[in-house]
């Protein structure tokens, strides 16, 4: 009957195991798959990321030089990051924040990568 007693007393004497979330935020672990971002000036607009993506959340337009990701369709698998030939895609360790309006992450290339000779 009193099997839980020790644990209960310990629980009273220790700090809570939960955090008051918006006030205290835990630092995310290294190598966590969070927000997807791009170094747009390094991108060669090959479109491999959009073909490999399992959820088809990336669109690449070669003519307009635009790379777009829908963060709300992204499944955070990092397949695109692994397959990018120029390694311009990256995932930082922070997760997407909740928002009121869904917005696409649209990146327009201005200059483009330097061409190798």
């Amino acid at each position: 009957m009193l099997d839980m007693t020790a644990t209960i007393i310990r629980n009273f004497l220790t700090k809570p195991h939960t955090r008051l979330y918006p006030i205290t935020v835990r630092e995310p672990f290294e190598n966590v798959r969070g927000n997807l971002d791009i170094e747009i000036e390094e991108c060669i607009l090959c479109g491999i990321c959009s073909k490999k993506c399992p959820s088809q959340c990336i669109t690449v337009s070669k003519e307009e030089k635009v790379w777009t990701v829908d963060p709300f369709a992204c499944v955070y698998c990092a397949i695109c990051v692994e397959n990018c030939p120029t390694h311009c895609l990256s995932m930082d360790k922070h997760h997407r924040k909740p928002v009121k309006v869904k917005e696409m992450n649209r990146q327009v290339q201005v200059k483009g990568p330097e061409k190798k000779k």
Partner: peptide, 10 residues
């Protein structure tokens, strides 16, 4: 869950 998040990424 923490182990999983830190080692595998999610």
């Amino acid at each position: 869950m923490d182990v999983m998040e830190a080692t595998a990424g999610n």
